[in-house]
């Protein structure tokens, strides 16, 4: 074990962890919107809309994230038409390709989490709102959505942690996130074990923080 290397690589890895957190927060931000949108489509009574939302979530949950990120980064770049369109300004950047892939992926899982939360809301809550003369729209936005979000906190917390681990794949499309920098240090020192232990420790620490924040939120917004 090369302790000196472990200590000297720590600052570089910590600053790379910021890239990881940036990727994570951007992906979660867009993913939450996508997830909410598709959860609403999933509970729609229109069969076509419903099927479309189902296929989306099935495809993104049924294939590895690595395949998705490769299709978006290397695959789409192959299409001549895309390269001449305005979309290329976004797809040209590895950073945005990674975020698109992550957001679509986490969006699929989030839509499932929210859908099941919508479906488990007790009908009594909605009826109570109706009997108080509150409009359907307000019931949806002010009652159903917040209750669903609260219901899905534990599952969503898990999803955040899974997504944070998923961001390590950004290193496969040239981004210098925590895993990317760890690999870079290894490629000059040829000592994989030491560097991966330090990087793993940082990931673990971030998992720990996320886990506890979610726990705190669950307590704060519990119904009791």
């Amino acid at each position: 074990m090369d302790l000196e290397l472990m200590i000297s690589s720590l600052p570089k890895l910590l600053s790379a962890a910021i890239v990881t957190l940036k990727l994570l927060s951007a992906s979660l931000f867009f993913g939450l919107f996508i997830g909410l949108l598709f959860a609403i489509l999933r509970i729609s009574k229109n069969v076509l809309i419903n099927k479309f939302a189902y296929v989306y979530s099935y495809v993104f949950r049924g294939t590895p994230l690595l395949v998705q990120i490769f299709i978006i980064y290397f695959g789409l770049a192959q299409i001549e038409y895309l390269r001449t369109s305005f979309l290329w300004t976004i797809l040209k950047e590895p950073y945005w390709c990674a975020i698109i892939a992550f957001a679509l992926n986490t969006g699929a899982y989030t839509s499932e989490i929210l859908r099941s939360a919508f479906q488990t809301i007790k009908p009594g809550i909605i009826e109570a709102g109706k009997s108080l003369g509150i409009s359907n729209k307000i019931i949806f936005y002010k009652i159903q959505i917040p209750v669903a979000i609260r219901q899905s906190l534990p599952a969503y917390g898990n999803e955040i942690i899974l997504m944070m681990k998923g961001t390590s794949l950004a290193s496969t499309v040239t981004l210098m996130d925590l895993t990317g920098v760890a690999k870079y240090i290894i490629s000059t020192t040829f000592k994989p074990i030491e560097v991966f232990i330090v990087a793993g420790g940082i990931y673990l620490f971030m998992t720990f923080i996320i886990h506890n924040v979610i726990k705190y939120l669950e307590k704060k917004y519990s119904f009791q």
Binding site: K165, L169, T179, A199, G200, T207
Partner: peptide
């Protein structure tokens, strides 16, 4: 530890 660290890292660690 296993559920908190990216799979890629676990695989690399095990491989090397």
């Amino acid at each position: 530890v296993i559920r908190g660290v990216p799979e890629l890292l676990v695989i690399y660690l095990f491989f090397f």
